[in-house]
Design a protein around this nucleic acid. Sequence first.
DNA 1: TCAATATAGTTGCGGGGGCAATCATTTCCG
DNA 2: CGGAAATGATTGCCCCCGCAACTATATTGA
Lengths: 152, 152
Amino acid sequence: MATRWLTPQEMAAWRSFIETTGDLMKAIEKDLVPFGLDRGDYQLLAMLSEAPDQRLRMCDLADSLRLTRSGLTRRMEGVMKKKLVARVQSDDDGRVAYASLTPKGFDLLKAAAPEHLESVRRLMIDLLTPTEVKSFASAFGKISENLSRLQG
Amino acid sequence: MATRWLTPQEMAAWRSFIETTGDLMKAIEKDLVPFGLDRGDYQLLAMLSEAPDQRLRMCDLADSLRLTRSGLTRRMEGVMKKKLVARVQSDDDGRVAYASLTPKGFDLLKAAAPEHLESVRRLMIDLLTPTEVKSFASAFGKISENLSRLQG
DNA sequence: TCAATATAGTTGCGGGGGCAATCATTTCCG
DNA sequence: CGGAAATGATTGCCCCCGCAACTATATTGA
C-alpha cells in the first residue's frame, strides 16, 4: 500500500503534540516538588482517594496507573516509606495485597490538589477556548476507545 | 486565593489527555520494534535527517529532543553502536561534537518513516475530524508558546 | 482429589535519563 | 596578555520502570 503521508496540518498537529506534551508534564510536575511528590505519586494518591475505602488491589491500581505490577511494587516503596500509603494483606485471598491511603497521605493530597489543579489551569485549560477543550476531550476519547478496542 | 476547581468538562479533557497519551505513545512505539528502534531513536534520526548536512551539535540536538546533555550522551551510545549515527569532532571549536546521520541511519529512517506515519494516522489522525486536528494544533501551539515564555 | 492452570505480587537485571561534579575549550574583559 | 566566566560534553550516582523468572495462593476439571 502506498504511504499515506501526513498533510502539513496533520504533521503540525502531531509535532506540536509530541513536542509539547513532555514540556507540559515537566512543568506541572515542578509545581508538585514543594509537596515532596512527583506526578506518579500524585496520581497514585489521587486514584486511591477516589476508590471505595480509599484502597485498591495492587493489580487494579497498576492497571489504572499504566504501570506493570513490578513498576507499582517499586513505586509503592517510595510512598510507603513516606507513610502516605500502607500495604494491607487481604484476608479473603492470600495472593492479594491492597494499597491503602493513610490519613497522612490523604492530608497531603488535599494540600497538593488545589495547587496541582491551579497548574493545570494556568498551563493548559485557561489557555484554550471552550471549543478547544471540548475538542480535546472528544479527540482523546476517540483515541482511547480505539486503543482499548485493539488490546483490551 | 480560592481554588479554581476544574469543571467536569475540563476535568474530563485533562483526564482523557493524561490517561491516553501514554497508551498512545506505547502503541506507536510498538510499531517501531521491527526496525530495532524506539521512539527516542526515531526522533533522534528524524531530527538529524532534517538538519543541514544531516548533522547537529550535541547540545542543539539535546534541546530539540528535550533531553539533558547527559541524557543525549547516553542515547548516542545506542545509535552509535548500531552505526546509525556518528560522533564527529568539530574542527572550529574544540568543545563541540556533532551527531551526524550515517547512510545506514538514513536508510533505516527511510524504511521506518512510512510505517511510523501510518501508525500515527491509524492510531490518531484518522480518528479525528479536521476540526479536531485543527484544534489540536492550535491548542498545543498555545500551550507551547506559553511554556517558552515562562522559561525560554 | 489432585495435578494443571490462572492469578497476584516480588525480585534480579538492565536500559533510559536526570543532577551534580568534572574536564576541556573558548570567550570576555580588566 | 591572563585570569574569570561561559559553553560543550562526559562521567558517577541514583531513580524509575519494564521484562522475565520466580514464589505463593486460588481455581478448575479430569
